[in-house]
């Protein structure tokens, strides 16, 4: 079952191998019996009529009760383990997780958030409190042997204790739309000391474009903005500096300001051919100006007509700072995808 990196992994694996062992024994027994009988008692003459055996009560009862007992043993084992797995520790570190098409967002008790990434300290019980803003997702970490649906309109909890530092996959395990398979992330298990350092925001030096690329991946931008998927969102390659026609008929140049506006207020200027309201979520409040500039730098580095110097520090003042003011003209609460 792959690397196990949580406190329950070994116990789940033990149960798994116990069941595998039983299964192999039973299937092998039946297979051997079938093949042996089929060969040994094969028909030797066309008019052969075998001894008629109608049945044997004692045998029937035997092979009813032995599987029954094995079943009950396995059930009890699995059920006890399940209750332990699903009950969070009292002192668990609570992290809030939000799923949406198609990215994960996690928020730590200190307020830090991260997208498609989760940093947790090793050997510390963690409890994820999860909800979704659109459809049902499922937060799965195969290495921890845990999995829980993330439902809209309700909280579900996922407790675990990571026991081995390293980087493990997060998958969305409940089909949630076309880019379901892109809704993946990484959980980084760190020593408590490193975790504290991470919380206080230590980052290394790298070029703005490289940081931007990393950010774009972590934020889930590249789930939609990819080369092979021009239908949902424009590809960034060669985008910078081009002229685009909006659905209002105006034209706009894809420059720093337009990109910034599109990240913060995706509903304002929508290029003709894309749905209104746009499926793009706003990143207002998630990115500071430096990070915005880094993403713009990354987009610019992907080529385009108008090669400019990065306007990293030229903060464009926003006239409208109310969070989330872009009206979603859909029916009340009908979800982000509602047509007007």
């Amino acid at each position: 079952m792959g690397v196990g990196a949580s406190s329950v992994a070994f116990r789940v694996d033990s149960l798994f191998w116990w069941m595998t062992m039983l299964s192999v024994l039973i299937s092998a027994g039946i297979a051997i019996a079938l093949v042996t009988f089929a060969i040994k008692y094969r028909r030797r003459s066309p008019d052969e009529v075998p001894v008629q055996i109608e049945g044997a009560l004692r045998l029937e009862l035997t092979w009813t009760f032995i599987p029954l007992i094995l079943s009950i043993i396995t059930f009890v084992w699995a059920a006890i383990l399940f209750v332990q797995m699903s009950r969070p520790e009292d002192d668990a570190l609570e992290i809030f997780v939000q799923g949406r098409q198609w990215m994960w967002k996690a928020q730590h008790p200190t307020g830090q958030w991260e997208n498609n990434e989760l940093h947790v300290p090793v050997n510390q019980p963690v409890k994820l409190s999860m909800t979704s803003i659109d459809v049902i997702h499922n937060f799965a970490v195969p290495a921890f042997r845990v999995r829980q649906d993330v439902l809209p309109g309700r909280y579900t909890t996922l407790p675990f204790t990571a026991t081995r530092p390293g980087v493990y996959n997060i998958f969305c395990s409940e089909f949630c739309g076309a880019f379901h398979s892109g809704m993946v992330g990484r959980v980084t298990v760190m020593e408590p000391r490193e975790y504290q350092a991470w919380l206080s925001g230590a980052t290394q030096m790298e070029s703005p474009a490289a940081t931007g690329q990393r950010l774009a991946q972590n934020l889930g931008c590249t789930t939609c903005h990819r080369d092979d998927n021009r239908r949902r969102a424009p590809s960034w390659v060669g985008l910078y500096g081009t002229q685009e026609t909006l659905d209002t008929g105006e034209t706009v140049t894809v420059d720093d300001e337009y990109i910034r506006e599109s990240i913060l207020y995706p509903q304002r200027k929508i290029v003709a051919g894309y749905a209104r309201p746009s499926i793009m979520p706003t990143y207002q409040g998630q990115l500071d100006e430096t990070q915005l500039a880094q993403i713009i730098a990354y987009i610019r580095s992907l080529g385009g007509m108008n090669q400019q110097q990065p306007g990293g520090d030229s903060s464009v003042p926003s006239t409208d700072a109310t969070p989330g003011l872009e009206p979603n003209s859909g029916a009340p609460g009908g979800g982000a995808q509602d047509e007007p």
């Binding site: 307020g111 979520p281 990143y283 969070p323 989330g324 979603n328 609460g333």
Partner: peptide, 27 residues
């Protein structure tokens, strides 16, 4: 406890207001 993102003011309420909600607005 849920610590809101930087500028998100209202803490979670038990009776959620559901209005025409800006689903894009994180927080």
């Amino acid at each position: 406890q849920i610590v809101a993102p930087v500028e998100q003011a209202p803490p979670p309420v038990t009776e959620p207001t559901l209005g025409p909600q800006p689903t894009q607005a994180v927080g």
